[in-house]
Computed example of a mutant assay.
Amino acid sequence: MISDTCLRRYGKTSLMLTFLNEKRENYIFVDCRLMQRGVFTLKSFIEILEEELSRLDWARDLLKNIEEVRVWTFWS
């Protein structure tokens, strides 16, 4: 997992996506800016992740073989 916390408007997203595309590996990019400001819930994260996974052919093929997912969190 990669997390970048520089100031805004420095090209972090472009840098990360360029690197990932040049590696020619499958990846999932979750843009947490899509979540409501100040609200981070497991549900909102899963919704964004689900949307991203549904757009990727390789991910849909991979997910077809998953029978069960368990999520454990440090917070309640």
Rank of each mutant, 00 (worst) to 15 (best):
M1S: 15
M1N: 12
M1W: 09
I2R: 09
I2S: 06
C6I: 09
C6W: 11
C6H: 14
C6D: 15
L7E: 14
R8C: 10
Y10W: 10
G11L: 02
K12T: 05
K12A: 09
T13Q: 10
T13E: 08
T13S: 08
S14I: 10
L15C: 13
L15M: 10
L15V: 08
M16A: 14
M16N: 04
M16T: 12
L17M: 00
L17E: 01
L17A: 02
T18M: 10
T18G: 07
L20E: 01
L20F: 08
L20I: 00
N21L: 12
N21Q: 15
N21P: 05
E22T: 14
K23H: 08
K23C: 12
Y27V: 00
I28M: 01
I28P: 06
F29I: 00
F29W: 05
V30I: 07
D31P: 05
R33E: 11
R33I: 07
M35E: 01
Q36V: 09
Q36E: 14
Q36Y: 03
R37I: 07
G38E: 00
V39E: 13
F40T: 15
T41E: 02
K43L: 13
F45Y: 11
I46N: 07
I46G: 04
I48G: 02
L49A: 05
L49Y: 02
L49S: 03
E51K: 10
E51F: 13
E51Y: 13
E52Y: 00
L53D: 07
A59T: 00
R60G: 00
R60T: 05
R60D: 02
D61M: 13
L62K: 10
L63K: 02
K64L: 06
K64V: 06
K64R: 11
N65Y: 14
I66S: 03
E67R: 09
E67C: 03
E68S: 09
V69Q: 01
V69G: 01
R70H: 12
V71Y: 03
V71W: 02
W72I: 08
W72V: 15
T73D: 04
F74G: 11
W75Q: 12
W75M: 12
W75D: 13
S76T: 15
